[in-house]
Design a protein around this nucleic acid. Sequence first.
DNA 1: GAGTGGTCTAGACCACGCA
DNA 2: GCGTGGTCTAGACCACTCG
Lengths: 236, 236
Amino acid sequence: MAIGRTCVAKNFGEVKADVLMRIMGGEWPPGSLIPNEQDLAVEYGVARATVNRAMRELVDEGIVERKRKAGTRVRQSPVRQARIAIPLVRNEIIELGSVYRYALVRSEILVPPDWRRAQMNLKPETEVLHLVALHFADGRPYQLEDRWINLDATPTARTVDFSVVSPNEWLVTQVPFSSVEISFSATSADPEQALMLCCEPRDALFRVERQTTWQGETVTYVNLVYHRDHRMTTSY
Amino acid sequence: MAIGRTCVAKNFGEVKADVLMRIMGGEWPPGSLIPNEQDLAVEYGVARATVNRAMRELVDEGIVERKRKAGTRVRQSPVRQARIAIPLVRNEIIELGSVYRYALVRSEILVPPDWRRAQMNLKPETEVLHLVALHFADGRPYQLEDRWINLDATPTARTVDFSVVSPNEWLVTQVPFSSVEISFSATSADPEQALMLCCEPRDALFRVERQTTWQGETVTYVNLVYHRDHRMTTSY
DNA sequence: GAGTGGTCTAGACCACGCA
DNA sequence: GCGTGGTCTAGACCACTCG
């Protein structure tokens, strides 16, 4: 298909696949210009809108760049972007084929220390619910959850029994759509974390932090730590 | 707009934004059914294709789920995916406003140990180029790169002077489009890593592993480690 | 079987950005 | 100015899947 020219495609998927193959095959090297939509439409025997759909997806995947008048170019260094799935811990564990268990470690209502209040951008004297919980896979600690919930934003959290429902699962039913900032990093186990995760103090841990904002107000901040060998993986 | 009904939209962006607003406003709670494309098209005064485009993007962003015949539903637990950009280290550092410097630490051609050969899925006796390099930001070690290049797949790598060009930047010019598997995790600094990154042995490090495959053959495997406070961040 | 989303078409107009 | 991509339209047919 790639070399023979005048090949026909029936849909945008085939157009996209063929263009991609021609790029990978070296026909259109990085930085080079691809024929315009009209020409490609004629070549593939499809409507221009179909070519457009194919090319839009290639832009979305970071393969090509398009500019009006300038045309479509193969990216020099493809902006590699990974999509990472963020499942509920429960599902993450079940899909590993392990048995899931949840345990609440600590639950307290308090006015947070200044550094936490500043980080969550809360008004002074705002009360928060601070929860520490463990998620087990086959009886072994898998994830340690350290969560802070803004009680101004989610007052009903006061009355929920988090020894039964895990905070994450309850929250997704309460705060359906919001903007989220996630970050990944590494951290060293402090003595308390080491006890709960059954590792040594100072051991490396994999950390995910997530801050959820709804209408400009921080709803919850959570710090999740995993054993150091925990991997978040993705392909593209 | 959200409540008043019979509002008009001019393009798919407005349709998408309005639908999103109605979802966030609670008009269509999680799990509920959204009107079908034809009805929405009439309501917004646009063509069905326009509504379709808007809804497809909402699917793409993990906001709604669609099934033929069953219709469009607001997802129970919304966003399950984050997009992470993966820039070249050089650009990553420059965008921090820091001065970038690169240094090659070690370069050797060898037949890899069995475990590495197995991991990279190489034929026995395949030679690889093993490189260790450091990337500095403002003179301080920022990233330690430990790379293995399959010389069968990329024979020209033998003749490149990697004390001048960093392996990553050279490779993107050679192996333009390929499939990649990335994973993130934490690890503990071994004594050599500690020396190079100016930290203590056993300190937590943030690790990114990347394996690049081209036409079924592993081209390169790289292990990148950062100081533990390095964050990969994304929003949605 | 019938209703829904998935896609294609042919044509049109617009917006950007280079000359 | 003018060529390119960006989008919309109106209509059509298809494919899936639910009841």
